[in-house]
Nucleic acid binder design. Structure first.
Length: 150
DNA sequence: GCCAACGTTGGC
DNA sequence: GCCAACGTTGGC
């Protein structure tokens, strides 16, 4: 799950009560459908820092609430306000996440790209613009081992 | 339903 | 700041 650290970093999440927050601002149908149809409570996710000096993975989270309406779409002062999202039939959804661990060492995108095992990882794919993408068990385990073995 | 124009994402 | 890639919009 990508977030721009200047806007919301892993340290922001760490500072929240119970280290838990809602993941708002998803305005892409593919990602919305993924959250709605695939993500479940108990699933885990990487916290990825995007659009910054050193992009990469900062830690892990778990999903603690499954998809429900993203209320920020209804508020016209919000960055991701969408007048077409009707409160009676919400167009956009969000999930709640809880910080699981901040990695003792940040895993940079450049390092991820050097891993042959991760060659097909969706988030690394050229032209990928989805802010949430699935991770295979192999990819997950490999990245976790990169942290542990460093 | 096609597709050009436009806007956004995000690495570099 | 550049620009490739891709999603969305809207005219037709």
């Amino acid at each position: 799950m990508k977030s721009e650290p200047d806007v919301y970093s892993i340290d922001h999440l760490a500072a929240e009560p119970n280290q838990t927050d809602y993941w708002d601002g998803i305005r892409n149908y593919q990602v919305r459908n993924f959250m709605r149809d695939v993500m479940q409570v108990g699933d885990r996710a990487f916290f990825y820092h995007s659009n910054c000096k050193v992009p990469g993975i900062a830690g892990t989270m778990s999903i603690v609430r499954s998809a429900y309406p993203d209320h920020t779409a209804f508020i016209d002062t919000e960055k991701y306000y969408d007048p077409k999202s009707d409160p009676n039939n919400p167009r956009w959804l969000m999930v709640d996440v809880k910080l699981e661990s901040k990695f003792p060492r940040f895993i940079a995108l450049s390092e991820l790209r050097r891993q042959e095992v991760l060659a097909d990882m969706l988030v690394l794919r050229r032209g990928n613009r989805l802010s949430v993408t699935p991770v295979t068990e192999n990819e997950w385990n490999h990245i976790v081992s990169m942290v542990e073995n460093s």
